[in-house]
Design a protein around this nucleic acid. Structure first.
Lengths: 197, 197
DNA sequence: GCGATGGTAGAGACAGGTCTGTATCATTGT
DNA sequence: ACAATGATACAGACCTGTCTCTACCATCGC
């Protein structure tokens, strides 16, 4: 009856896998502890022995997502070594693909921050810190690409990135939509000058 | 004890005012019926006599917000009659101002859709229908402004709009930030050609 | 070999709180 | 007197987190 392959992973991993999928797909507040333990086939006490609270589990989910997002970013920029302008554009092309994925449900960090509005919530702090990290990474790329005003390009691109996440979930941009990548290319070229094609 | 001025409006309006403020500021799921009746100084049964359920109250909140947003849009475009390109740019300038407002908490419709993920939820349907309406309005402006590819410009601008809402809440773009308006201007000019300054 | 031991995990009851929605009764303004 | 409203208690559901009891399974002493 149990899911053959994953049934023999340690309980902690099964819990985190299940929680990540449910939190992302249905929302953090909408998913209760009981649902997670039922779906992961784990005892309630196994959950509370591995995580001190639901908040703690949410933080673990976000931390893992941050690591995965960082790895994704690194993979994309590694395809254009030494070419920051191409790296920026490639990030938006990859983002456009991700948005088209059937399991796409928006940015998990934006969603978490939207659901958990208490300024003291540690999960919220994690999500916002990640946004700042993305901002810093974009800023370094903008500087390296020789943008006239790196602050402005960085802000514009992060706007576009957030917009792609939000629009990909709420609207349906339709498959093959090139608005994300084309808008990014226009903004990047406008900020860096048309020098060297 | 009660808030002098608003205390003498009919119960239904006081409920809706309070609910709108709380739903927007703290989130729909985070605000319970008891909080709304306590803050609006109304009896629970007065709420349930005016609204059949919390869902019904949420729908009323969103419908009123949709009407207010439509009025805001009309006011902005009315300042540039017969000039769709200026109308589009003015919308983003106005949006940038709104984002800087201390009470700004993101797009209420995006937030509602993020919190209420059940596809059958009527409030979710209202929020998504509103996004489609905005898309249609933008599309008409893009056509009127003579964009080469109105579909693409419309999609790009709605991406930017969603991004401005999301980024204005999660990130702090800082006051006087011109990323929203400048990005919109670049995209609009790129799509409509530089003809007639 | 082989039984004892200890760590890990499943199952489920339970406590205490919050939430929505209903019912009842008192109050107030006209 | 009457309709609208305030106050309050309550039912039923759900949620988090604790507790107990049992089963399994490895390792270790012998």
């Amino acid at each position: 009856m149990s899911e053959a392959a994953s049934a023999r992973k340690p309980a902690r991993e099964r819990i985190l896998d299940t929680a990540a999928e449910l939190f992302y797909r249905e929302g953090i507040r909408a998913v209760g502890i009981d649902t997670i333990i039922a779906k992961s086939g784990v005892a309630k006490m196994s959950l509370y022995r591995n995580f001190t609270s639901k908040d703690d589990l949410v933080c673990a989910y976000l931390e893992r997502s941050i690591a995965q997002h960082g790895a994704w970013w690194d993979r994309v920029v590694a395809r254009h070594p030494g070419d920051p302008r191409a790296q920026m554009k490639a990030l938006f092309v990859a983002l456009a693909h991700w948005i088209d994925h059937p399991k796409f449900q928006g940015c998990p960090f934006t969603s978490a921050a939207a659901e958990l509005r208490d300024p003291d919530n540690p999960a919220r702090a994690l999500a916002l810190a990640h946004k700042r990290m993305v901002r810093d990474r974009l800023h370094r790329l903008a500087v390296a690409a020789g943008a006239d005003d790196p602050d402005r390009l960085c802000a514009q691109l992060q706007l576009l990135m957030e917009g792609a996440y939000a629009a990909g979930r709420a609207l349906d941009l339709g498959p093959g939509n090139d608005a994300v990548a084309s808008a990014a290319a226009i903004l990047i070229d406008a900020a860096c000058g048309q020098a060297r094609p």
